[in-house]
């Protein structure tokens, strides 16, 4: 049985939300900013962030028996013996709001999608900080099925391992998509070196979603 960790509050990064809204490096105008604030408040009221997880052995290109891809294992788990497999969700409240605005208000719906994505990222950050508390060994970077050579099919195995349906009400459908939608499954290794990650390592220099790289 997996262990459950709930979070009362999450940090919110407006920059991250703006990135999803394709503002690139630009600042938000006043109306977008205030609308974003309003939507953020609505989202905040229904957030139920929870994570279920297990510690698992790393063995070759597998974690807890789940194949994570050769390149991914090399990049994210080199030198790791143990890793954490987790599933995180913001809960169904955001989906309910998305359903409402998706059918009646395209503007708010787009903002809410961005706010939800930013919160999901924030939840993963909060969870990894929680894992790191009182541990000497450093956590590496998290990586998820469907990215790089970590097959999306691994979603089924992660679900079989963690039973997040029961633990946190997170389900997987036939197309390997999760409900509630603002959810993440990922693996993060103990004692892995920090890699150069995300946008910095990406070829697409003029991507709308690109983060500011210093």
């Amino acid at each position: 049985m997996s262990v459950i960790k709930r979070f009362e509050k999450l940090d919110f990064c407006e920059r991250e939300a703006l990135r999803y809204l394709r503002f690139g490096q630009s600042e938000a105008d006043e109306r977008t900013h205030s609308a974003l604030e309003e939507v953020k408040k609505e989202a905040e009221a229904v957030l139920a962030p929870s994570v279920c997880y297990l510690q698992a052995d790393v063995c070759g290109n597998c974690v807890g028996g789940i194949f994570v891809g050769e390149k991914s294992a090399g990049r994210f788990l080199s030198g790791c013996r143990r890793a954490v497999v987790f599933a995180a969700t913001l809960g169904i409240g955001i989906d309910r709001l998305l359903s409402k605005y998706g059918q009646t208000d395209a503007f708010k719906c787009a903002l809410l999608q961005a706010v939800g994505a930013a919160y999901a990222e924030s939840l993963c950050d909060a969870f990894c900080s929680f894992l790191q508390e009182n541990r000497k060994e450093a956590l590496g970077d998290r990586f998820s099925p469907g990215y790089g050579d970590f097959p999306l099919q691994a979603q089924r195995e992660i679900f079989a391992l963690l039973s997040p349906e029961r633990a946190i009400g997170l389900t997987l459908n036939e197309s390997l998509l999760m409900s509630p939608s603002k959810s993440v499954t990922a693996i993060v290794g103990w004692g892995a070196p920090k890699t150069e990650k995300g946008c910095a390592s990406c070829q697409m220099q003029d991507c709308d979603y690109r983060k500011d790289i210093k």
Partner: peptide, 13 residues
Amino acid sequence: GPCGRLLKPYGDL
């Protein structure tokens, strides 16, 4: 027990 899938409109069942 539950079937493991969420029903419409939030899930796909």
